[in-house]
Design a protein around this nucleic acid. Structure first.
Lengths: 108, 108
DNA sequence: CGATATATTCTATTAAGACGAACAAACAGG
DNA sequence: CCTGTTTGTTCGTCTTAATAGAATATATCG
């Protein structure tokens, strides 16, 4: 049974799905900022990614150095099957709760 | 500018909208349990309602005693305009984040 | 090597969520 | 009115999630 997802955990999982194979700390943060209009700090984002990994909802690996670029290597993330289950359950619950609302509500 | 909504805060606000003029602790809890399959305890629900009220997203008043029934009076809750703004913003952000996902995702 | 660019981790603190027991208030029957 | 029963809310305490900013790490280039 999946535990509940925190608010940022929801957003981070969604961002990972959206970003596909270009999902790492910086892009995750940017995507959430872009979609929600409220950026979270890097500390917040990385803490959430680590928590999701502890829970087995996500996994990570280090990318190769990128020639021509400089800077530390990226740590990529991907949603694991358990993470997909949790995310699906959450979206489903939300769909249930938003179904039948007055049309003025933006049902996602 | 509304701060972010916690996970339960989201669900409680949605439940309040769904329940309309029959929204109080017990029905809110039941509605969330029904829609998400994961009940929260009363302590958790009431703490969240109190938090939402502190933030000005919700208001409350005591109902009249119901003859023939017995039991303590209900404390009704209603979403205030600021709460609607916050809820709308959250649903909107979610719509943005779920738009364009593969069709296997249950977009709410 | 030193400078620069890029990305992640650490350290503290506050906010949110969780739960069960305790408490409160309304009514009914004696 | 007192006592039991029903219904609903609050309290005390703990765990988990979120937060920001400083510090650190790592890669490349000159």
């Amino acid at each position: 049974m999946p535990g509940r997802l925190g608010e940022l955990e929801q957003l981070v999982l969604l961002a990972l799905v959206r970003l596909g194979d270009d999902a790492y700390g910086v892009t995750v943060r940017r995507e959430i900022a872009r979609c929600t209009g409220r950026p979270a700090s890097f500390g917040t984002i990385y803490a959430t990614l680590a928590r999701l990994e502890d829970k087995g909802l996500v996994d990570s690996w280090l990318g190769d150095p990128t020639p021509l670029r400089g800077g530390r290597r990226k740590k990529y993330f991907r949603v694991r099957p358990a993470g997909k289950v949790a995310l699906r359950a959450y979206l489903q619950a939300l769909r249930t709760m938003t179904r039948g609302l007055a049309p003025s509500w933006p049902v996602p």
